[in-house]
């Protein structure tokens, strides 16, 4: 709808602008969350920055490796222009690995660190949906519901708005659990499982979904797997916490 923003003589890509603002806000939120959870904010912020930068570099290098023939006579092309040409999976793997090793090196508690990273991660995903809504190629399925929006001259489900609402619900869960969690890692696992469950639900209303050969929504399959794993781990963490409490109670008596 608004692929570019015109500011006088300058034409700025809406999505790029949102990604930069989103990254800045997400990182700030992670730092604040770490402080609220009693962690070292600088170290947790370091994990987030390392994962983000590692992810971007990894995504670019993976893309360059896949299309090496196009880059081998133009090595400068690997570092410029950077407005496109990234491989999602390469970025994810290298970003997560970079954040993990940074955390290990600084001996951060993994579950507590994930609790602090959760709002930044979810907010980042909300920004991706917002950028897709304002400037991306995504659109919802045809519908006659009263809240439908006119997109590409048809009445459609505002699927990216649904995704944003799912993200806000997950952030609400995180905010509720932030101070009431019974065990470290619970806020991360529960907010991510709510987000995954929501995306599983709303991706059905996306008309340009990423499909498997059989026509299944790949994002729904990934979301279901993530949701079940997170809920299972949250249940296990809860059991361990209860067991520990019982053991210490018995020792006291």
């Amino acid at each position: 709808m608004y692929p570019v923003i015109n500011l006088g003589p300058f034409v700025l890509p809406t999505a790029g602008l949102l990604y930069i603002l989103g990254a800045w806000f997400s990182l700030s939120w992670v730092e604040k969350a770490a402080k609220q959870l009693g962690l070292n904010p600088e170290r947790v912020y370091g994990v987030a920055v390392t994962a983000l930068v590692g992810g971007l570099i990894g995504a670019r290098l993976t893309f360059a490796a896949i299309y090496w023939q196009a880059f081998q006579h133009n090595l400068l092309g690997i570092i410029w222009p950077l407005n496109t040409g990234y491989n999602l999976w390469g970025g994810l793997v290298i970003g997560v690995a970079a954040g993990f090793f940074y955390g290990r090196y600084h001996q951060l508690h993994p579950a507590s660190t994930l609790d602090a990273l959760a709002p930044g991660l979810i907010f980042g995903l909300i920004v991706v949906s917002l950028a897709d809504f304002l400037a991306g190629p995504g659109f919802g399925t045809l519908t006659r519901v009263p809240w439908a929006i006119t997109q590409y001259s048809m009445r459609r489900h505002p699927v990216q708005v649904y995704e944003i609402l799912v993200g806000l619900a997950a952030l609400f869960v995180w905010w509720r659990l932030r101070d009431q969690r019974t065990v470290a890692g619970q806020a991360f696992l529960m907010s991510v499982s709510v987000y995954s469950g929501g995306r599983l639900l709303v991706d059905a209303f996306r008309d340009n979904a990423w499909l498997s050969g059989g026509g299944y929504h790949i994002l729904q399959i990934i979301s279901l797997a993530v949701m079940i794993v997170c809920l299972y781990l949250a249940a296990r963490l809860g059991e361990t916490a209860v067991q520990r409490r019982q053991d210490s109670h018995q020792e006291n008596h």
């Binding site: 190629p137 659109f139 001259s153 048809m154 340009n208 059989g214 299944y216 729904q220 279901l224 949701m227």
Partner: peptide, 27 residues
Amino acid sequence: GIVWILFSREEVSRSRAVVLTEAPIVG
């Protein structure tokens, strides 16, 4: 979740352009 995924399954061969008009817009 599996039931919902099965329910959301799409016909892969369908042509989305059939219901669309001429416009310089994705889809």
